[in-house]
Design a protein around this nucleic acid. Structure first.
Lengths: 369, 369
DNA sequence: TGCTTAGTCT
DNA sequence: AGACTAAGCA
């Protein structure tokens, strides 16, 4: 059975708000590592991957892995019945066809309980490419939202060009062409120096979670895991942030060396194999920052303009703004967004929050389509 | 002729916002007691009863009773032309076919005047049952609104179960079932201890006002009036809160004993005849509280969670959420709502505000309809 | 974070 | 035409 208690229902509410327009039905795959959702958008153009780590819950228990087929519209409705600060508990019996959600007011004079029907959803195995990106752009989520919205008024696509100096977002439209250049600033570089170094990528394929994740009992710590050889090493010192569960694609951060992960190496081998815990929460200290989204920590996200760029080579790609605007809704979950790009490879838009992360993949437009 | 001056137009605006979707046309019946509106909703399922006591007006004069047939949509539009804090004066000549509304800014530098056409409306005699309810639930209006809205997302009906411990609102829907339990708390019990004890019920039938009420000359105070023998007594001291005009049904408050009405017995007979003043404003002191709606008086409505329950026996009833959601709009008029229920009897949802009250009646669903 | 306005869908 | 949902503004 599954029992997951979240301290504030608002996290789940925001998560659903972020993806419910993109995906109508999806499986929440739960195992002892946490909850994971991967799905193509309704038109099969974009891919969404959400992960909520067990560590992010007040209480988390999952006896055995199981997929919870959920209609996201229905779940959104049910979540709307929760107050933002309600303690939210998700429960599902092992072969249940319902997901039970309990909302408790922090003062306990109100208890609401909902049972939502589950459905069987074909888990289309999603092949998330295991890519080492040539460019990683870290910037304030609000900036990204603004740019996408602005440019979407002009045209349907945006051309994103990454160079050492900065990122340019350009769109050509009927009535006007627009271009926004964000320069890399020292302040931004410093601010994001160790951001997302260990958990940015790594959407394991299903495979990873199916057996690998369960089998591992590993550390709850925030050590990043190696895509391939997680069980064996404990290079806690590396902050590359490879956190691919499946090993299908691993994220590369060109400049490691920050070494800010906590080492929980001790437990590495202890866990069977597959310790794909990327500590989203504590590792790199970003997760912590993110969680304060609305708090407006000035020195971190909001106040500093500019972007931080890490790259191996120039990248120029064109994307549908409609999707990017949609992705940008996750701004509610994090102050910071990262764009991972390589030429001719799907863009990865990543938002990390206290309890996990949400990744969006979007294939580039080719030629002048 | 009628002349009624209200210190703040916002009261009327909120009142109209509350009922305009339920009722399209209705008579404002005015007599020296004040203004009253009673109407079935458009589908004749629910009944709305609004009362604004003469005392609640800065100035009130009604030479002889008359019905003002109003299209509520039109009145709403006209009221939108008033600023919330404008002093609003309603005037109608004895046989006028127009209602004159004057809006004066509090500093008098602006005077707006509108004439709205009146219409003849068949006053369907409304038979409001005179019921002694088995359960009375007093709770924050916002809580009631929230629950009705939440559950209306899931299903069409809500089952309300009242027990000593609390109230449960439950709804079953296609995608999910939901249940909200509000526990009775000591804080809530204290908060609402003397709430609505004297004016909760008592919608007189039309009849009452037509002849019976007029004949009485009684006090203007907050004494409840006797349906039958009004002209003779002036029991100003009782605060039972029977305020039925017609005598058809009288409101019962199980626990009276507050005794907080003011006695103005002296003037009872002095007035010609027809003094059916029920003083909603001052009696019991609740009216006063209510009027502060938006002010967020913590110790009164908003801050205290939980409900207060007074009951003779368990009650379980099922209602259409669509209507309850509609009723809940009156939250703009009061921080507190009371639900009065008996098995197999229409629910009474009552909101009291400084100038009067609004009562909604809704028949329960029987069986599994 | 809440409210108001605009647009879309029923 | 009305209601509901989503986006923008305060």
């Amino acid at each position: 059975m599954l029992e997951a208690k979240l301290s504030d229902a608002v996290i789940l509410k925001r998560l659903l708000d972020s993806i419910k327009e993109l995906v109508t039905d999806a499986n929440f795959d739960c195992n002892e590592e946490g909850l994971k959702l991967q799905a193509m958008d309704n038109s099969h153009v974009a891919l969404v991957s959400v992960k909520m780590d067990a560590d992010g819950f007040v209480k988390y228990r999952c006896d055995r892995p199981m997929p919870l087929g959920v209609n996201l519209g229905a779940l959104t409705k049910v979540l709307k019945c929760a107050k933002d600060d309600d303690v939210c508990t998700l429960k599902a019996a092992d072969d249940a066809d319902v997901l039970n959600l309990t909302y408790e007011a922090k003062n306990s004079d109100r208890i609401a309980e909902y049972d939502m029907k589950l459905m069987d959803i074909d888990a289309d195995q999603l092949g998330i490419p295991d890519t080492e990106y040539d460019a990683r752009v870290t910037m304030p989520a609000a900036e990204f939202t603004r740019i996408c919205r602005d440019l979407s008024q002009l045209g349907e696509s945006v051309r994103i060009e990454v160079s050492k100096e900065g990122v340019r977002f350009a769109s050509d439209g009927e009535a006007a062409n627009g271009s926004v250049l964000l320069k890399q600033t020292e302040a931004a570089r410093r601010k994001y120096a160790d951001y997302g170094k260990d958990d940015v990528e790594a959407e394991g394929e299903q495979e990873g979670e199916a057996e690998g994740s369960k089998t591992k009992k590993v550390k709850k710590e925030k050590v990043k895991k190696e895509p391939g050889d997680e069980d064996t090493e404990m290079n806690g010192a590396e902050e590359d942030a490879e956190e691919d569960d499946g090993g299908e694609f691993k994220a590369k951060s060109d400049d490691e060396g920050d070494g800010e992960e906590e080492k929980s190496d001790a437990d590495e081998d202890s866990s069977n194999k597959k310790k794909r815990k990327k500590a989203p929460a504590s590792a790199n200290g970003k997760a912590a920052k993110k969680s304060k989204k609305k708090s407006g920590d000035d020195d971190d996200d909001g106040s500093v303009g500019g972007v931080s760029i890490e790259m191996n080579q120039h990248v120029t790609l064109t994307f549908s703004l409609k999707y990017l605007v949609n992705f940008a809704k996750s701004q509610s979950l994090s102050d910071t967004v990262q764009l991972m790009m390589s030429n001719d490879v799907p863009l990865l838009v990543s938002y990390k929050f206290g309890q996990g992360h949400i990744h969006y993949y979007l294939a580039p437009k080719i030629g002048d389509e």
